[in-house]
C-alpha cells in the first residue's frame, strides 16, 4: 500500500503562499484556520529559505498518542485523520505536534477551543466519501477521486511534492543528484562566495549581498 507523504524542496520554494491559498479555497476552511503555512528563515537576508508546513502525517503520530478521547486514526494510505464527532477541542494535539498542524476555531469558555481542524491530505474524514457532510466538516476528499492534495498540485515551482513516499523521495533524489550534494567540493562552499577562490564577492543565498 502506498504511504502518503509531503515533501517540500527548500531550494525551490519561493514563499508565494500558493499552497496556503489553494488549501483554504479547496477545503473552504473558516476564518483563522490555516491548515498549511509557509515559514521563512533569514527573511530578506542572504540565505533566505522557505518551507511549506502542514500536518506531515507521522507514522507514530504524537497527536494521536496524547488525545484524551482517542479520535485519531491512520488510513491505509498512511494519512492521519481525526473524527470531529469525537473531538472535544482540548488542544493537547497542538501541544504535542512538532509542526503546529492542529488548528482550533474559537468556540468555548473564554474564547477557548472548538473542534480541532487540520490538514487531511485532502482525504476527508470518517464520513462517507465526498458526501456533503464530509465536505462541511473536513473539506475536500480528493484522494477518493484519485487526485492528490491541491496544495502540491498547485505549487508553481513544484517545490511541494505530495504522494506515495517512494515516488516523492525518488523525484527529490534525482533533483538532488543533479544539483550535486551539499557538502564541500562541488557544492555551495566552492561554487559561491568562498573568499579565497571567488575573490571576496559574496553571492551566498538567492538574495543579493547587502554590501
Amino acid at each position: 500500500m502506498a504511504r502518503m507523504k509531503f515533501l517540500c524542496d527548500a531550494e525551490r520554494c519561493i514563499e508565494c503562499n500558493g499552497c496556503v491559498t489553494a488549501c483554504k479555497n479547496e477545503n473552504e476552511v473558516p476564518w483563522g484556520i490555516n491548515r498549511r503555512r509557509v515559514v521563512s528563515i533569514n527573511d530578506g537576508s542572504p540565505g533566505e529559505r522557505s518551507l511549506s508546513v502542514a500536518c506531515m502525517h507521522c507514522s507514530d503520530a504524537p497527536c494521536s498518542a496524547v488525545c484524551p478521547v482517542d479520535c485519531f486514526y491512520t488510513t491505509d494510505d498512511g494519512v492521519v485523520l481525526h473524527d470531529k464527532d469525537i473531538c472535544i477541542g482540548c488542544g493537547y494535539c497542538f501541544y504535542a505536534c512538532p509542526f503546529g498542524a492542529p488548528q482550533f476555531p474559537e468556540g468555548g469558555a473564554y474564547g477557548s477551543r472548538g473542534k480541532m481542524d487540520k490538514c487531511t491530505f485532502c482525504a476527508g474524514g470518517p464520513l462517507p466519501d465526498n458526501s456533503a457532510e464530509e465536505f462541511r466538516e473536513y473539506g475536500s476528499n480528493r484522494l477518493a477521486q484519485g487526485k492528490l492534495p491541491l496544495c502540491a498540485e498547485m505549487c508553481a515551482t513544484k517545490a511541494l511534492l505530495a504522494g506515495d513516499g517512494n515516488v516523492v523521495s525518488d523525484i527529490f533524489r534525482q533533483r538532488s543528484v543533479g544539483r550535486a550534494s551539499p557538502g564541500i567540493a562541488w557544492a555551495w562552499g566552492v561554487a559561491y562566495g568562498k573568499p579565497g577562490i571567488r575573490s571576496g564577492r559574496d553571492m551566498s543565498g538567492k538574495a543579493s549581498s547587502e554590501e
Binding site: 490555516n34 503555512r37 521563512s40
Partner: peptide, 15 residues
C-alpha cells in the same frame, strides 16, 4: 522564522 500566517507560534518551524 517569518510567516504570512498570523497565529500563535505560526512562525515556528518545529516545536
Amino acid at each position: 522564522g517569518v510567516s504570512q500566517v498570523q497565529a500563535v507560534d505560526g512562525s515556528v518551524f518545529i516545536n
